[in-house]
Protein backbone atom coordinates (compact mmCIF):
# COMPACT_ATOMS: atom_id res chain seq x y z
CA UNK A 1 0.00 0.00 0.00
CA UNK A 2 2.81 2.36 0.91
CA UNK A 3 4.51 1.55 -2.33
CA UNK A 4 1.33 2.14 -4.27
CA UNK A 5 0.88 5.60 -2.75
CA UNK A 6 4.52 6.42 -3.45
CA UNK A 7 4.09 5.25 -7.01
CA UNK A 8 0.99 7.41 -7.43
CA UNK A 9 2.53 10.58 -5.98
CA UNK A 10 5.71 10.10 -7.96
CA UNK A 11 3.80 9.88 -11.20
CA UNK A 12 1.03 12.30 -10.32
CA UNK A 13 1.92 14.46 -13.32
CA UNK A 14 1.38 11.64 -15.78
CA UNK A 15 -1.81 10.56 -14.07
CA UNK A 16 -3.20 14.07 -14.11
CA UNK A 17 -2.35 14.28 -17.79
CA UNK A 18 -4.06 11.00 -18.58
CA UNK A 19 -7.04 12.06 -16.51
CA UNK A 20 -7.45 15.44 -18.24
CA UNK A 21 -6.90 13.93 -21.67
CA UNK A 22 -9.50 11.30 -20.90
CA UNK A 23 -11.98 14.00 -19.87
CA UNK A 24 -11.37 15.98 -23.03
CA UNK A 25 -11.83 12.90 -25.21
CA UNK A 26 -15.07 12.09 -23.44
CA UNK A 27 -16.18 15.66 -24.10
CA UNK A 28 -15.07 15.38 -27.70
CA UNK A 29 -16.99 12.19 -28.37
CA UNK A 30 -20.08 13.31 -26.51
CA UNK A 31 -20.22 16.72 -28.08
CA UNK A 32 -19.29 16.15 -31.69
CA UNK A 33 -22.98 16.57 -32.35
CA UNK A 34 -23.23 20.33 -32.04
CA UNK A 35 -26.76 20.44 -30.75
CA UNK A 36 -25.92 18.29 -27.74
CA UNK A 37 -23.54 20.81 -26.25
CA UNK A 38 -25.94 23.35 -24.94
CA UNK A 39 -23.65 25.27 -22.64
CA UNK A 40 -20.26 25.29 -24.24
CA UNK A 41 -21.10 26.34 -27.74
CA UNK A 42 -21.06 29.53 -29.70
CA UNK A 43 -24.78 30.12 -29.34
CA UNK A 44 -24.68 30.62 -25.60
CA UNK A 45 -25.54 33.97 -24.16
CA UNK A 46 -22.08 35.42 -23.67
CA UNK A 47 -20.43 34.44 -26.91
CA UNK A 48 -23.61 34.75 -28.94
CA UNK A 49 -23.89 38.38 -27.92
CA UNK A 50 -20.21 38.92 -28.56
CA UNK A 51 -20.55 37.50 -32.06
CA UNK A 52 -23.55 39.67 -32.88
CA UNK A 53 -21.70 42.78 -31.71
CA UNK A 54 -18.78 41.85 -33.92
CA UNK A 55 -21.17 41.29 -36.81
CA UNK A 56 -22.59 44.75 -36.32
CA UNK A 57 -19.11 46.16 -36.65
CA UNK A 58 -18.29 43.99 -39.64
CA UNK A 59 -21.37 45.25 -41.47
CA UNK A 60 -19.77 48.66 -41.73
CA UNK A 61 -16.91 47.28 -43.78
CA UNK A 62 -19.34 46.22 -46.48
CA UNK A 63 -21.05 49.60 -46.66
CA UNK A 64 -19.11 50.70 -49.70
CA UNK A 65 -20.16 47.69 -51.74
CA UNK A 66 -23.72 47.92 -50.47
CA UNK A 67 -23.85 51.57 -51.48
CA UNK A 68 -22.58 50.75 -54.93
CA UNK A 69 -25.23 48.05 -55.26
CA UNK A 70 -27.95 50.41 -54.14
CA UNK A 71 -26.82 53.15 -56.49
CA UNK A 72 -26.86 50.66 -59.34
CA UNK A 73 -30.29 49.45 -58.37
CA UNK A 74 -31.58 53.02 -58.14
CA UNK A 75 -30.29 53.76 -61.60
CA UNK A 76 -31.97 50.67 -62.97
CA UNK A 77 -35.28 51.38 -61.27
CA UNK A 78 -35.25 54.96 -62.40
CA UNK A 79 -34.74 53.99 -66.02
CA UNK A 80 -37.61 51.52 -65.86
CA UNK A 81 -39.89 54.15 -64.43
CA UNK A 82 -39.26 56.63 -67.19
CA UNK A 83 -39.91 53.95 -69.76
CA UNK A 84 -43.02 52.66 -68.06
CA UNK A 85 -44.93 55.82 -67.44
CA UNK A 86 -44.11 58.29 -70.13
CA UNK A 87 -43.50 56.69 -73.47
CA UNK A 88 -45.04 53.33 -74.11
CA UNK A 89 -48.18 53.54 -72.04
CA UNK A 90 -47.49 50.65 -69.74
CA UNK A 91 -47.89 47.76 -72.13
CA UNK A 92 -44.34 46.96 -73.14
CA UNK A 93 -41.23 48.27 -71.51
CA UNK A 94 -37.93 48.19 -73.32
CA UNK A 95 -34.78 49.49 -71.77
CA UNK A 96 -31.96 50.28 -74.12
CA UNK A 97 -28.73 50.47 -72.27
CA UNK A 98 -25.37 51.10 -73.80
CA UNK A 99 -23.46 49.15 -71.19
CA UNK A 100 -25.63 46.07 -70.90
CA UNK A 101 -27.14 44.06 -73.71
CA UNK A 102 -30.88 43.84 -73.23
CA UNK A 103 -31.73 40.44 -71.88
CA UNK A 104 -35.26 40.65 -70.52
CA UNK A 105 -38.29 42.76 -71.39
CA UNK A 106 -41.06 43.20 -68.84
CA UNK A 107 -44.70 43.58 -69.77
CA UNK A 108 -46.96 44.71 -67.00
CA UNK A 109 -50.25 42.86 -66.67
CA UNK A 110 -53.00 42.06 -64.26
CA UNK A 111 -54.05 38.73 -62.84
CA UNK A 112 -57.76 38.18 -63.40
CA UNK A 113 -58.23 34.69 -62.05
CA UNK A 114 -56.22 32.39 -59.81
CA UNK A 115 -56.62 29.02 -58.14
CA UNK A 116 -54.61 27.61 -55.26
CA UNK A 117 -56.49 24.52 -54.15
CA UNK A 118 -55.96 22.07 -57.04
CA UNK A 119 -53.10 19.79 -57.88
CA UNK A 120 -52.39 21.89 -60.96
CA UNK A 121 -53.03 25.54 -60.32
CA UNK A 122 -53.23 28.18 -63.03
CA UNK A 123 -53.44 31.94 -63.05
CA UNK A 124 -55.16 33.84 -65.81
CA UNK A 125 -53.64 37.14 -66.91
CA UNK A 126 -55.08 39.92 -69.05
CA UNK A 127 -52.38 40.02 -71.74
CA UNK A 128 -52.29 37.69 -74.74
CA UNK A 129 -50.78 37.13 -78.15
CA UNK A 130 -51.87 40.61 -79.26
CA UNK A 131 -49.49 41.96 -76.63
CA UNK A 132 -46.67 39.72 -77.79
CA UNK A 133 -47.02 37.08 -75.11
CA UNK A 134 -45.79 33.60 -75.97
CA UNK A 135 -45.86 30.28 -74.19
CA UNK A 136 -42.80 29.68 -72.02
CA UNK A 137 -42.36 33.21 -70.75
CA UNK A 138 -41.89 33.76 -67.06
CA UNK A 139 -44.26 35.70 -64.83
CA UNK A 140 -43.10 37.53 -61.74
CA UNK A 141 -44.57 40.02 -59.34
CA UNK A 142 -42.81 42.64 -57.26
CA UNK A 143 -42.86 40.13 -54.41
CA UNK A 144 -41.44 37.17 -56.28
CA UNK A 145 -41.86 34.41 -58.81
CA UNK A 146 -45.37 33.52 -60.05
CA UNK A 147 -44.99 30.92 -62.80
CA UNK A 148 -44.61 30.19 -66.51
CA UNK A 149 -46.97 31.05 -69.37
CA UNK A 150 -48.55 27.87 -70.69
CA UNK A 151 -51.38 28.75 -73.08
CA UNK A 152 -52.03 32.01 -74.91
CA UNK A 153 -55.20 33.36 -76.48
CA UNK A 154 -55.60 36.71 -78.21
CA UNK A 155 -56.26 38.72 -75.07
CA UNK A 156 -55.41 36.38 -72.21
CA UNK A 157 -52.81 33.88 -71.17
CA UNK A 158 -52.87 31.17 -68.56
CA UNK A 159 -49.89 30.76 -66.30
CA UNK A 160 -48.76 27.51 -64.73
CA UNK A 161 -48.08 28.73 -61.21
CA UNK A 162 -45.39 27.48 -58.86
CA UNK A 163 -48.28 25.68 -57.15
CA UNK A 164 -48.41 23.13 -59.93
CA UNK A 165 -47.15 19.67 -59.23
CA UNK A 166 -45.30 19.47 -62.56
CA UNK A 167 -43.65 22.87 -62.29
CA UNK A 168 -40.06 22.90 -61.01
CA UNK A 169 -38.20 26.16 -60.61
CA UNK A 170 -34.42 26.27 -60.65
CA UNK A 171 -33.62 27.96 -57.34
CA UNK A 172 -30.63 28.76 -55.24
CA UNK A 173 -29.85 29.73 -51.67
CA UNK A 174 -28.91 33.38 -51.81
CA UNK A 175 -26.26 33.21 -49.10
CA UNK A 176 -24.31 30.14 -50.15
CA UNK A 177 -25.23 29.97 -53.84
CA UNK A 178 -26.13 26.26 -53.77
CA UNK A 179 -28.58 25.33 -56.47
CA UNK A 180 -31.58 23.12 -56.09
CA UNK A 181 -34.97 22.69 -57.57
CA UNK A 182 -38.12 24.09 -56.06
CA UNK A 183 -41.27 22.00 -56.32
CA UNK A 184 -44.67 22.12 -54.75
CA UNK A 185 -45.77 18.89 -53.13
CA UNK A 186 -49.42 19.77 -52.75
CA UNK A 187 -50.99 20.73 -49.47
CA UNK A 188 -50.34 24.17 -48.04
CA UNK A 189 -50.35 26.87 -50.71
CA UNK A 190 -47.82 28.93 -48.74
CA UNK A 191 -45.16 26.23 -48.63
CA UNK A 192 -43.01 24.74 -51.36
CA UNK A 193 -40.11 22.28 -51.08
CA UNK A 194 -36.52 22.81 -52.12
CA UNK A 195 -34.77 19.66 -53.33
CA UNK A 196 -31.20 18.61 -54.15
CA UNK A 197 -29.39 20.68 -51.52
CA UNK A 198 -26.54 18.45 -50.31
CA UNK A 199 -26.14 17.77 -46.60
CA UNK A 200 -22.87 19.66 -46.15
CA UNK A 201 -24.46 23.02 -46.93
CA UNK A 202 -25.02 25.20 -43.89
CA UNK A 203 -28.65 26.23 -43.68
CA UNK A 204 -30.51 28.62 -41.45
CA UNK A 205 -34.16 29.29 -40.97
CA UNK A 206 -34.86 32.53 -42.80
CA UNK A 207 -32.33 31.98 -45.62
CA UNK A 208 -33.59 33.59 -48.81
CA UNK A 209 -34.25 31.45 -51.86
CA UNK A 210 -33.93 33.18 -55.24
CA UNK A 211 -34.06 32.23 -58.91
CA UNK A 212 -30.90 31.18 -60.73
CA UNK A 213 -31.66 32.53 -64.20
CA UNK A 214 -30.30 29.30 -65.69
CA UNK A 215 -33.39 28.44 -67.69
CA UNK A 216 -33.74 32.01 -68.99
CA UNK A 217 -37.39 31.99 -67.96
CA UNK A 218 -36.89 34.28 -64.98
CA UNK A 219 -34.12 36.80 -64.49
CA UNK A 220 -31.54 35.87 -61.91
CA UNK A 221 -32.12 36.89 -58.31
CA UNK A 222 -35.91 37.09 -58.23
CA UNK A 223 -37.17 36.30 -54.75
CA UNK A 224 -38.90 32.96 -54.28
CA UNK A 225 -39.24 32.63 -50.54
CA UNK A 226 -37.60 31.97 -47.23
CA UNK A 227 -36.60 28.76 -45.49
CA UNK A 228 -39.02 28.05 -42.65
CA UNK A 229 -37.73 24.67 -41.58
CA UNK A 230 -35.48 21.89 -42.77
CA UNK A 231 -34.35 18.47 -41.70
CA UNK A 232 -31.87 15.86 -42.77
CA UNK A 233 -33.29 12.31 -42.77
CA UNK A 234 -30.94 9.62 -41.46
CA UNK A 235 -28.68 8.26 -44.17
CA UNK A 236 -29.82 10.79 -46.71
CA UNK A 237 -27.51 13.05 -48.67
CA UNK A 238 -30.03 15.79 -49.30
CA UNK A 239 -32.05 18.07 -47.07
CA UNK A 240 -35.80 18.28 -46.89
CA UNK A 241 -36.40 22.03 -46.94
CA UNK A 242 -39.70 23.82 -46.57
CA UNK A 243 -39.80 27.23 -48.20
CA UNK A 244 -42.41 29.82 -47.41
CA UNK A 245 -43.27 31.46 -50.73
CA UNK A 246 -42.96 35.22 -50.76
CA UNK A 247 -45.94 35.57 -53.09
CA UNK A 248 -49.42 35.09 -51.72
CA UNK A 249 -51.25 33.42 -54.60
CA UNK A 250 -54.61 34.29 -53.13
CA UNK A 251 -54.04 38.02 -53.44
CA UNK A 252 -52.43 38.53 -56.82
CA UNK A 253 -52.99 41.69 -58.80
CA UNK A 254 -50.24 43.36 -60.79
CA UNK A 255 -47.66 41.09 -62.31
CA UNK A 256 -44.92 41.30 -64.92
CA UNK A 257 -44.52 38.98 -67.86
CA UNK A 258 -40.86 38.48 -68.65
CA UNK A 259 -39.68 37.97 -72.20
CA UNK A 260 -36.14 36.77 -72.60
CA UNK A 261 -34.33 37.97 -75.72
CA UNK A 262 -31.60 35.43 -75.36
CA UNK A 263 -33.60 32.36 -74.47
CA UNK A 264 -33.76 30.99 -78.00
CA UNK A 265 -30.09 31.67 -78.53
CA UNK A 266 -29.22 29.74 -75.39
CA UNK A 267 -31.53 26.87 -76.32
CA UNK A 268 -30.06 26.58 -79.80
CA UNK A 269 -26.56 26.55 -78.41
CA UNK A 270 -27.40 23.88 -75.86
CA UNK A 271 -29.18 21.82 -78.54
CA UNK A 272 -25.89 21.68 -80.42
CA UNK A 273 -24.39 19.78 -77.49
CA UNK A 274 -27.13 17.15 -77.73
CA UNK A 275 -26.70 16.79 -81.47
CA UNK A 276 -23.01 15.87 -81.18
Amino acid sequence: MKNLIRFLTKNSFVFLFVFLLFISFVLLVQNNNYQNSRVFNSSNFLIGNLYSTINNVNDYFDLKEVNADLAQQNARLQSTQIGTFSKINGIVVEINDTIYAQKYVYTSAKAVNSTTNKRENYITIDKGSLNGIEAGMGVVSPKGVIGTVKNVSENFCSVMSVLHEKNAVSAKIKKSGYIGSLVWELGDYRLAQLKDIPNHVKLNVGDEIITTGYSMVYPEGIMIGKVVDFDLPEGNNFYNINVELSVDYKSLSHVFIVKSWMKNEQKELEALNNAD
Binding site: S24, V26, L27, L28, N32, Y34, S37, N41, S42
Partner: peptide, 11 residues
Protein backbone atom coordinates in the same frame (compact mmCIF):
# COMPACT_ATOMS: atom_id res chain seq x y z
CA UNK B 1 -16.45 27.32 -26.54
CA UNK B 2 -15.94 29.71 -29.42
CA UNK B 3 -15.89 27.02 -32.07
CA UNK B 4 -18.51 24.68 -30.53
CA UNK B 5 -16.05 21.81 -30.67
CA UNK B 6 -15.78 20.96 -27.00
CA UNK B 7 -12.88 18.60 -26.42
CA UNK B 8 -10.93 19.16 -29.62
CA UNK B 9 -8.71 22.06 -28.62
CA UNK B 10 -8.89 20.92 -25.00
CA UNK B 11 -7.22 17.61 -25.73
Amino acid sequence: TFTSTLGMHTS
